[in-house]
Design a protein around this nucleic acid. Structure first.
Lengths: 347, 347
DNA sequence: GTGAAAGCGCTAACAA
DNA sequence: TTGTTAGCGCTTTCAC
């Protein structure tokens, strides 16, 4: 590896001057500048980023914590984050916790040890928030990329996404299509991350004068398989359902499969709606109707927040800022339709 | 940030001793050990990884170059890579080139500047291999994660996946089902990355005494949309096709959509087969029959290779090693079936 | 405009 | 067993 010193020697100057040339600090005569640049080229010199980071006191990386890279929600978000972060001159370090608190701790420790200049946390649910707060207190910029608890102010700078509203929108859509016998497949436990989507959905029904009967909700996990299982359970328990709301796209996709497997036509016999609008949603057939959440925008807001924090160098002070991403919006595709006459009559 | 020195002062020892305690170098009395550990805890000390990397002369990160994080092929592979890499004590840096040579260069420069200890390149197609070779010559471990050109020895340590064979397998499957009028949708140009899959497919047909007529192949891109367009074009040009082979799952999915859009039943009227077996393949309906490529295994082999290179510290020397991943295998799902009588008769 | 010198926080001989 | 002494490669005052 060529070093600054070698370049300097070759150019007949000192390291300081080479550094000045490279950082474009001005104060260098055109002539030596040329000489230095030539030497750099000849030697194929690349500045050692580690050394630079040490000298500058800050690494040039930003970390993104996710519970699983394999989560299909990840790609779009990560892409936006990566782009935004690069624009600031940082590199992205992916911290894949696999929902394992130990791994999570390991990463957080590393970040505290200046692995990264700041941390973006994609899904704050799986993370022990306390750990993040501690990290913040140590002076590391931390931002929660998707805060979905409108009842609590976030303990850290966050981007809020109105999932309550998303739930309401889903309910309104189904109601407007004439559905009355509706089931719900949850991608989390009742106390879990999706609670506000559930509440929003309930609220939407309530405003239409409807209630969700006991036994019309199945709680589970945020996966296609869990959704399929939940779908089967729900359809078996309440056979005359005309619509199912899933708290996330993945389980909604599972419900789609379950419906197909028991010979139900979607949307003829059953309508299905999800939340998020991951890429998959429009790639499956029937394409999934869903309430799209502003993924890219959230990523950008999150990066904006962290940029600010990085610039402001310290002093948290006061209530952590909360940026609101725009309101989720309904994306009607092929998986929802009017409640069938038969089913409507059956009510 | 607490530093080693502060911990040392607090514990009444020197930095070297603290370092020894932390690295578990032995040679420390139990008593001082305790004292040091106590100080570490009290001060909430975390070693500065940047400084450590600089002192050790090597960063603790490995880079993964991909053309797009959003490529659905990425998740499974990245997950495997991340795990393997972490097991070695490294962090993963994701380098998303967006198919942009400039970004790619920027990343490669950074890596050369010791951003990372080594580079895994997921898809060597988009990358100017020369740049990678240069990097290797500078002493940076580089491995190509999916070498699909059996006719050329790779210029860098690589993991070979037999896509020629995958193509053959696809052909055999279709032939066995009685298909004779077959179309091909390519996810690359003829000269592109998928060429060997194409050749393999042709070879498979040939062995069955079949040929692919002119105009039965459409070249395009490795996306669902491109696949859909190609599918439409193909079905319009050769209406009596009974099967389509796509060189990758994404375009195969697109063909599935095209078929649905023109009212063709899959697999009743048309069979569709892809290559890779990305997660999506079994999540869509009809589930996609495909030739599964050993993704996880390739990732593991690639990491093994790079580990070796890291350990062997330099001296490339001789033909770069080539690890063979296991043979692709057919995964029959719902998108392929026997050639319909009518169509077979039409021949 | 350029150089000399100190130091970022840690590791790694070597001495004591 | 512990301390001392040098750096790792770069940035950054501060003189010249």
């Amino acid at each position: 590896m060529t070093t600054l010193a070698e370049v300097a020697r070759k150019a007949g100057v000192t390291a300081a001057t080479v550094s000045n040339v490279l950082r474009e600090r001005g104060k260098v005569s055109v002539e030596t500048r040329e000489r230095v640049l030539a030497a750099v080229r000849e030697l194929g010199y690349r500045p050692n980023l580690t050394a630079r980071a040490l000298a500058e006191g800050q690494p040039q990386t930003v970390a993104l914590m996710v519970s699983s890279i394999a989560n299909p929600f990840y790609p779009a978000f990560a892409l936006a984050v990566e782009r935004a972060v690069r624009k600031l001159g940082y590199f992205l370090i992916v911290c894949n916790t696999n929902d394992d608190p130990e791994q999570e701790r390991a990463y957080l420790d590393a970040v505290a040890g200046s692995l990264a200049r700041g941390v973006l946390v994609m899904n704050a649910d799986f993370v022990q928030i306390d750990e993040l707060v501690k990290l913040r207190e140590r002076g590391v910029p931390v931002v929660l990329c998707m805060w979905e608890k409108p009842d609590q102010p976030p303990p850290l700078p966050s981007v809020a996404v109105d999932f309550f509203r998303a739930g309401m929108i889903a309910a309104e859509h189904l109601v407007k299509l004439g559905h009355r016998r509706i089931g719900v497949v949850m991608g989390s436990e009742l106390s879990g991350n999706h609670i506000w989507r559930y509440r929003g959905f309930l609220e939407g029904l309530k405003r239409a004068g409807l209630e969700l009967p006991e036994g019309h909700t199945v709680f589970g996990h945020d996966t296609i398989d869990a959704g399929r299982n939940a779908g089967h359970a729900l359809l078996a328990a309440v056979p005359d359902l005309t619509a199912v709301f899933a708290s996330n796209d993945l389980p909604a996709l599972g419900v789609l499969q379950a419906a197909a497997e028991v010979g139900l036509d979607v949307p003829g016999d059953l309508s299905v709606i999800g939340i998020t609008d991951i890429a998959l949603a429009h790639q499956v057939r029937p394409a999934l109707t869903t309430v799209a959440v502003p993924i890219d925008e959230s990523a950008e807001l999150a990066v904006e927040l962290i940029t600010q924090m990085i610039r402001e160098t310290g002093t948290p002070g006061g209530q952590p800022p909360l940026r609101e991403a725009s309101v989720p919006r309904l994306v009607v595709r092929a998986s929802t339709g009017r409640a069938s006459k038969a089913a409507a009559g059956a009510k």
